[in-house]
Computed example of a mutant assay.
Amino acid sequence: MKLKPTRVLDLVANVLVAALAAWIATRVAYDSFPPISIYAGTSLYPVAAIEVALAFVIRARVNDRQVGGDRHQLHPITAARAVALAKASLQVGSIAAGVWLGFLCWVLPQRGTLRAAAADSPGAIVGMFAGVALVAAALWLEYCCRAPDDPSDDPATT
């Protein structure tokens, strides 16, 4: 079975399902939620930064044909683990972005009438962008882990 790149449509579906679930939960139980600080959603930013750095390292090694079993090369298992990290991060990031989006869809219209909603909005916005940043970083990492195209088996024509 060949591992294929993540489809953007799957990520959009994650966002929409998570947003709907979060909107319903927020609508039903907002009064029992704790206050959302500006730092509530920031935990995904460092993960996104690490994935971007890892993507650049892997991309450089792949472009320089430095993938293999030698100790100075990028081991293929390391690249496979990076792909697994990217795939998992795509799921986490898209779901997190959806949850924060659903929360925002309920909170933003309530800002004028509820002081708590106005106070919770900045933290939710930071969290939503953290999810988007993780998705972007994971897509980049997944892209950088692609195997270079194999040379054609067809004989050269002259």
Rank of each mutant, 00 (worst) to 15 (best):
D64S: 08
A55L: 05
F56D: 09
D70R: 10
G68D: 07
A55E: 01
L85S: 04
G68M: 13
A82Y: 06
R59D: 06
D64V: 03
A80F: 11
V62P: 01
A55Q: 04
G68N: 08
R71F: 11
A82S: 10
R65T: 10
P76M: 14
F56I: 14
L74D: 02
R65Y: 05
V52Y: 00
Q66D: 09
A79K: 15
A80Q: 12
A82P: 02
E51A: 03
R71Y: 09
R61N: 13
R71A: 06
L54T: 13
I58Q: 01
L74W: 01
E51K: 04
A60T: 10
Q73Y: 06
G68E: 11
Q73R: 06
I77A: 11
A84R: 08
V83N: 03
D64L: 13
D64A: 15
F56P: 01
I58E: 00
G69N: 11
A79G: 09
V57C: 02
Q73C: 09
D70L: 11
F56E: 13
N63F: 04
Q73H: 11
I77P: 02
Q66T: 06
G69T: 15
P76W: 15
Q66L: 11
H75G: 02
A53M: 12
T78P: 02
A80D: 14
L54A: 09
Q73W: 08
F56Q: 14
V52Q: 00
V62I: 14
H75L: 05
I58P: 00
R61M: 14
A82I: 10
A60W: 09
D70A: 15
H75K: 03
L85R: 05
R59W: 07
I58Y: 05
G69D: 12
V67P: 00
A79C: 13
A80W: 04
I77R: 10
P76V: 15
R81D: 04
N63H: 11
A79R: 15
G69C: 01
I58L: 13
Q73M: 15
A82L: 06
G68Y: 13
G68Q: 15
T78W: 07
A84V: 07
